[in-house]
Simulated scan of single mutants.
Amino acid sequence: MIVKDEERVLGRCLDSVRDLVDEVIIVDTGSSDRTQEIASHYTPHVYHFLWKDDFAAARNFSFEQATKEYIMWLDADDVLYEQDRNKLADLKQSLSWEPDAIICDYQLAFDTAGNATTNSRRYRLIKRSQGYRWHNPVHEYLDVTGGKVLQSDIAVSHHRVGDHSARNMRILQQWIARGGKLEGRMLFFYANELLDQQRYLEAMECYETYFQEPSGYREDRIAACGKLAECYHHLGRKEKKIDSLFKSFHYDVPHADICCTIARSFEDRGEWALAIYWYSRALESREPDGYMGVVNIAYRTWVPHVQLCLCFANLGLLQQAFEHNEHALSYLPGETNLLENKRRLEIALGI
């Protein structure tokens, strides 16, 4: 782990894995709070690393301190809950071959009941002898090209503390000033930071440049289509927004979030039949095998049903509207607006 000023969350993270791992490596990059003291209660392996605005460098240093066969990396605001602790323990006991990397779920957002609503997948455990390295000073990633990979359903839950957009942009701008070239994933990540800072025109130009490159990760390309559409939305260029969404079909089957965004565009025009078509496609979509990108589960569960209720109601098809509202309630029982929809639709249908 690399840490800085994580006294609020470090103990929670380490408590969730301390009995499952054979050593704990903590690399502190300049804490001014009790982070180092807390870390020392869990491990004697607490190291100091002079921060140089480069997450990959810090993570690579942390990997260099490890001595066991496999390395599992975590952030201080990550945690393994009991179900996933049990899965990790079972994996350690039952692993019958030696993969070079193990992919785990990374849960990024949660509903009020604690259920994951947004998920991605990351290379989480790495065979140390392979010498895999981290790349990029920010939005760093592990390159395990050519490695033997095991897919696991173990989930690491991430409860982010704070907004890091300003920090990320500062690191990227410093990297550019030092001669870093904006291309490939770095161009994609830079565009994302521009979008987060609502610099829509600049972000749009970067995404368009990114698409001119001959190759790229499938997940990045699809995400860029959705983000470019968001830029065009804010810039008032509705036709270009739709074009950007359809562009994602060059890279994969239609994804639920893309289908919902297309549907919403038609809904905003009052083109209810077309909106219904695309919300229905969202409900039919499935996450492709091996997909590593961010997936918002709501876009293939309750969101399409809520909007289909509205679309059918606008067409006067109240029975279909009622049925979709019921489906939405199965995901969000007790949701006030949905319960009010149910009451009104029951009155209108004479139920």
Rank of each mutant, 00 (worst) to 15 (best):
A191D: 13
Y190K: 01
E205A: 08
F188Q: 06
V156M: 08
R167E: 11
L195I: 05
Y200P: 08
W175Q: 10
A177M: 11
S165A: 12
L150I: 04
N168P: 06
A155S: 15
Y190F: 15
V149M: 13
V161I: 14
Y190G: 08
G162D: 13
Q198E: 15
G162E: 10
E183C: 11
M169E: 12
G180A: 02
L150Y: 06
L172H: 00
L142I: 15
H158K: 09
Q198Y: 02
E208P: 00
L172P: 02
G179H: 02
G146A: 09
D153C: 02
G147L: 08
R185L: 11
N192R: 08
H159Q: 12
R170V: 01
L195P: 00
Y141D: 15
D163G: 04
M186A: 12
M186F: 06
L201K: 11
H139D: 13
H159T: 06
W134Q: 10
R185F: 06
H159N: 10
L150G: 11
W134V: 09
Y200G: 06
H135V: 11
S152H: 01
H159I: 05
M204L: 08
C206P: 01
V144K: 03
N192Y: 03
D143E: 13
I171N: 02
W134H: 09
Y207R: 03
N136E: 14
A155F: 00
L187W: 00
G184R: 05
H158D: 13
A155G: 14
A203E: 06
Q197M: 06
E202C: 02
L194C: 11
M186E: 13
E208I: 00
L172F: 03
A191T: 12
L201I: 07
I176T: 09
W134L: 10
W175N: 08
D196L: 06
L182I: 07
V156T: 08
A166G: 12
C206E: 03
Q174V: 07
L182C: 05
K148F: 08
Q198C: 12
R170Q: 07
G147K: 03
L187G: 02
V144G: 01
N136F: 09
Y190M: 05
L182D: 12
G162W: 03
A203P: 05
E208D: 07
P137F: 01
R178M: 09
V144R: 01
W134G: 10
D143C: 12
A177Q: 13
A177E: 15
S157R: 11
G147A: 15
A203S: 15
G179K: 06
I176M: 15
G179S: 06
R178C: 11
L194Q: 12
V161L: 10
S165M: 01
G146E: 10
L201A: 09
K148Q: 14
E193V: 01
L195G: 03
E183V: 15
M204I: 00
D163N: 14
L150C: 06
Q174W: 04
R170M: 03
Q197Y: 02
A166Y: 02
M186R: 14
N168G: 11
N136M: 14
